[in-house]
Design a protein around this nucleic acid. Sequence first.
DNA 1: GTTAGCACTCATACCTAACGAGTGCTAAAT
DNA 2: ATTTAGCACTCGTTAGGTATGAGTGCTAAC
Lengths: 341, 341
Amino acid sequence: MLSDRQQLILNAIVDNYIHSAEPVGSRTISKREDIGFSSATIRNEMSDLEELGYLEQPHTSAGRVPSTKGYRFYVDNLIQPQLLNEAELGKLKQLFAERILHSEQVVEYTAQILSQLTNYTAIVLGPEIFEHRLKHIQIVPLNETQAVAIVVTHTGRVENKLIDLPEGIGASEIERLVNLLNAKLTDVPLWQLRQRVYQEISGEMRRYAEQYEEMLKVLDKSLTQEEERVYLRGATKIMNQPEFRDVDKVKDILELLEQNDQLLHLIGMPGDGLTVRIGQENQLDAIKQCSIITTSYSLGGKPVGMVGILGPTRMEYGKVITVLNYLAEGLSRMLTSQFEK
Amino acid sequence: MLSDRQQLILNAIVDNYIHSAEPVGSRTISKREDIGFSSATIRNEMSDLEELGYLEQPHTSAGRVPSTKGYRFYVDNLIQPQLLNEAELGKLKQLFAERILHSEQVVEYTAQILSQLTNYTAIVLGPEIFEHRLKHIQIVPLNETQAVAIVVTHTGRVENKLIDLPEGIGASEIERLVNLLNAKLTDVPLWQLRQRVYQEISGEMRRYAEQYEEMLKVLDKSLTQEEERVYLRGATKIMNQPEFRDVDKVKDILELLEQNDQLLHLIGMPGDGLTVRIGQENQLDAIKQCSIITTSYSLGGKPVGMVGILGPTRMEYGKVITVLNYLAEGLSRMLTSQFEK
DNA sequence: GTTAGCACTCATACCTAACGAGTGCTAAAT
DNA sequence: ATTTAGCACTCGTTAGGTATGAGTGCTAAC
């Protein structure tokens, strides 16, 4: 375990490096107000910290830089919660004051503001719709073979899907089906829909005609649609970081961020609380020099989505964590209140 | 006007530069198979071409590089239509073979394929819905104060908007309104909707109650929604270009591309045919070292959307133009056939 | 245990010289 | 009148060599 002084010094080094982006030397630390030792003492401690794996030296005559282990210790033990200033708080409150918005849009704005506030890249995973309850279902035929199935949830989310109609089905039959579905399935949570369709409806429907068998398959398809929506904002912010002035490094990262499915991996699954993945701890090579902080937001106590920040390992962990917590909480409150109406 | 030989040489220089990205010297040109002159002769011609403004010299002891004017002449007069190879054609045909897709999704894939095929950045503007005819309209109340208005067009496009309900309006009244709307407005082109609502419906509605006045405003709002959808793919491709190995240059461009409204400016309005904007000809500083080639695709003869490519001024104009034309035509055919059903 | 002092390391900046790609001009060849 | 060979000249790029200084590690004194 690290001594108090070692912790003090490690903290000072990480802190300094986060703001300067330059390897920090013993003299710099000894000059800090909160440190009362000479550079020689610091040097000795630094040497020890390096031996223990908390610091690294780019080359012999340079200062020290925190290692992944160093950041990890910093995040787990040293970090102090940071308060937001007026302007920042204002922006956040403004977001949650918006009223006439789909929950989806709120999430989109959240990503925007998250990125603006932190100057890092924001990744937000839209709320999973499992918990949402069916408000209305509609099937609109376009021609003899195609129709659009539309599902509206009680929070105002609208999903739609183009479907192929079974041959020989008529408008009136579709209408009958839609009425039946609305009568039986309103207020059923989406995650139960498939099951309920089979349990309650299929029996009744089978009476009508064998086309319904086909129809059922189609319905099933349109109900299980569950597109993952990830919002990415401020992807270019990484280029403001001095350690990413190299096109090749940046390219790998941005190419990664261009792929939606990779974003899903990065952001993780709802349910994990605040998670910090630092540098080497990341699986993907492209972001081994980055850190990702994520947390989930919830709806009625159940986690349904994620908000996250991607930045350099040399990230302002304190601030980012504060902002993320604040936003996740706000989002949760907002969604929950919408949910309970 | 340029002599035949000058044109031949200019063509050779642009061609060479496009593939090498290095200033091209007189010897390089004289060694080409299609050129039968010594380097000295080429030098003299180059000197003339520079004086005329078609070429530029980065510095005295370097070769020549085409100026914007040079590229312009190349594009307008020298370029030869390029044929696509098997693999490329295959990919394009595959796209248009897909059947069960919203037109919106086809457009999205188009951007993807465009970028893959050219190795440049693709920008595609989704089809404007003016021409689309109303198939179905639905208003789903969520609670006492809010509802979702849904508009389905006959091509299967679904628009939805969260709206505030006027106070005191009941579910049955909404239903009556929706029925009225569907009865009167089906098959009306979207661009006429607002007008028709006022002309035909408002009179009848006014009879019911004064709430409808409020309701009308809301409807109007939800019908005029017309979100511009721009699809951007392969934004990072620009980093493959040797002249964009500099983070600062790339940053400006990518930041521009992050802003949806700016993308709209870049891509232009449907209606313009094939347009090439080269380097300095672009308004925005960030892309004065880039060229943009756009063309529109249409629906039933009327232009409704745009496809475009953003690349370095040193772009493979011939190939890009071929691909764009091919895709725009294919898209038009596909949309039109869907439209006519 | 702490600190002052000092030799040592090594990335960076700066300078200079050599190199060579490419030009422009002139004079000879066609 | 063109075209071309020849050659001096320009200037960006590269390589080598040195000075600089930030920072270390070690030792000896406090």
